[in-house]
Design a protein around this nucleic acid. Sequence first.
DNA 1: AGCGAGATGAGCT
DNA 2: GCTCATCTCGCTG
Length: 197
Amino acid sequence: MPLPRKFYARENTAKIARELLGKLLVVSSPEGRVSGMIVETEAYLGAIDRAAHSFGGRRTKRNEVMYGEPGFAYVFFVYGMYNQFNCVTGAAGTPHAILIRGVEPVDGVELMQKRRPKAKRLTDLTSGPGKLCIAMGIDRSLNGEDLLGNKVFIERYRTVRPASIASGKRIGIDYAGEDADLPLRFWIAGNAFVSRK
DNA sequence: AGCGAGATGAGCT
DNA sequence: GCTCATCTCGCTG
């Protein structure tokens, strides 16, 4: 059962990013259903966050869904070949989002391996934001998709003790000045599907 | 096992 | 025209 809209609607996006750890991301397509436990996330705090696409209230065709209702997918394309999956949080008009950077495969491992034939080890399959999108079949056709629908959703799975949650600076946002050092990346300590140690 | 570079295109200035 | 919320390969040691 998908998490309720209220889960995403809260204003404390960093808190929501922590709470997403241990939840199950589920994606259904004609090819089949795959799922993975979320093990790494990053919070992007909207207009005041230099690392966010919505910094300064910038609003474009690409980031439009960040400004919409919470509980929707924000999927964008980077580096000429990769997609990244985010969920929109905060009230409508508050352009916050949480990037999913790593999941541990649960269902549909075979389909995921078929989609990522280059991944030699299981731990290479979904240990990164671009990797997990390929493995789970997430692309821009899912941008703006309701996370309370049946194509993509997130549900309860495991409880993660606060003591086993680690945090640190976000990856690949060195251009963000002082905001680059904010501890807005969260991961399950010791999990093999975290993109970096 | 760690580092540098190339891939590849949309989005913004 | 350059930057980018990345990944993989091939070189070095």
